[in-house]
Computed example of a mutant assay.
Amino acid sequence: MKKFNFTINGNKYAVDLKEFEDEQAVIHVNGTEYVVEIHQERKKAAKTPKLVRESVVRQPGEGRIERKVSAGGFPVEAPLPGSIFKLKVKVGDTVEKGDSLLILEAMKMENEVLADQAGVIKEIRVKEGDAVLQNDLLLVIE
């Protein structure tokens, strides 16, 4: 309920607005109830602008990541997305299971990627500073 004070022709009126539906209102003026019609011009509804964009046309092969397939050996893949902070091995190095191969920086933390098996580093597919996604091929142990 809203309360209003009006002065009409020098007379003061205390008006309580009880209900308001469509163009009719129930009001109490100085204790007497009235049903009144409201005459008001309708405001034009504001139009919401529509954003018009051209449809995106992709070029053949665009948006696809091609995986590099190893020609044999044991692939070492990125466990999570990040960037290569430091390589600790080079091609031809012999590694044992559990040896640190490289450091992957992800979520502002340095994560060591360890060898899952013993062998010789056959190829390295990344260099320091490269950004990698999860499951990207990092290097191959033979």
Score class of each variant (00 low, 15 high):
Phe4Cys: 02
Phe4Glu: 03
Phe4Ile: 15
Phe4Lys: 06
Asn5Ser: 13
Asn5Phe: 07
Asn5Ala: 13
Asn5Trp: 13
Asn5Leu: 11
Phe6Glu: 10
Phe6Lys: 03
Phe6Tyr: 09
Phe6Thr: 06
Phe6Ala: 15
Phe6His: 09
Phe6Pro: 07
Phe6Asp: 10
Phe6Arg: 06
Thr7Arg: 12
Thr7Ala: 11
Thr7Ser: 13
Thr7Phe: 10
Thr7His: 07
Ile8Lys: 14
Ile8Thr: 09
Ile8Asn: 09
Ile8Ser: 13
Ile8Ala: 07
Asn9Met: 15
Asn9Glu: 11
Asn9Ile: 08
Asn9His: 13
Asn9Val: 03
Asn9Ala: 11
Asn9Cys: 04
Gly10Thr: 04
Gly10Lys: 03
Gly10Glu: 14
Gly10His: 01
Gly10Pro: 05
Gly10Tyr: 06
Gly10Ala: 13
Asn11Cys: 07
Asn11Glu: 09
Asn11Pro: 03
Asn11Ser: 14
Asn11Asp: 14
Lys12Ala: 12
Lys12Asp: 12
Lys12Ser: 09
Lys12Asn: 09
Lys12Leu: 11
Lys12Val: 09
Lys12Ile: 03
Lys12Phe: 07
Tyr13Phe: 14
Tyr13Gln: 03
Tyr13Cys: 05
Tyr13Ser: 03
Tyr13Ala: 14
Tyr13Asn: 08
Tyr13Met: 08
Ala14Trp: 05
Ala14Cys: 11
Ala14Asp: 09
Ala14Lys: 08
Ala14Glu: 15
Ala14Phe: 09
Val15Trp: 00
Val15Thr: 09
Val15Gly: 01
Val15Ala: 00
Asp16His: 00
Asp16Pro: 06
Asp16Ser: 07
Asp16Ile: 00
Leu17Thr: 02
Leu17Phe: 01
Leu17Glu: 01
Leu17Pro: 08
Lys18Asn: 05
Lys18Phe: 04
Lys18Cys: 08
Lys18Tyr: 07
Glu19Val: 02
Glu19Thr: 15
Glu19Arg: 00
Glu19Gln: 04
Glu19Ala: 05
Glu19Cys: 03
Glu19Trp: 01
Phe20Asn: 11
Phe20Lys: 05
Phe20Trp: 08
Phe20His: 05
Phe20Thr: 06
Phe20Cys: 01
Glu21Tyr: 11
Glu21Ala: 05
Glu21Gly: 10
Asp22Ala: 12
Asp22Gly: 10
Asp22Thr: 06
Asp22Trp: 00
Asp22Leu: 04
Asp22His: 03
Asp22Pro: 01
Asp22Gln: 07
Glu23Ser: 12
Glu23Leu: 05
Glu23Met: 11
Glu23His: 12
Gln24Val: 13
Gln24Tyr: 14
Gln24Ala: 06
Gln24Gly: 03
Gln24Lys: 08
Gln24Met: 11
Gln24Trp: 05
Ala25Ile: 00
Ala25Asp: 00
Ala25His: 05
Ala25Glu: 00
Val26Cys: 07
Val26Leu: 15
Val26Tyr: 00
Val26Asn: 06
Ile27Met: 06
Ile27Gly: 12
Ile27Lys: 04
Ile27Ala: 08
Ile27Ser: 09
His28Ala: 15
His28Gly: 09
His28Met: 15
Val29Thr: 02
Val29Asn: 00
Val29Tyr: 03
Val29Pro: 03
Val29Leu: 03
Asn30Asp: 07
Asn30Thr: 10
Asn30Met: 11
Gly31Ala: 04
Gly31His: 04
Gly31Glu: 04
Gly31Asn: 02
Gly31Trp: 00
Thr32Phe: 01
Thr32Ile: 12
Thr32Pro: 01
Glu33Met: 14
Glu33Thr: 15
Glu33Lys: 13
Glu33Ser: 15
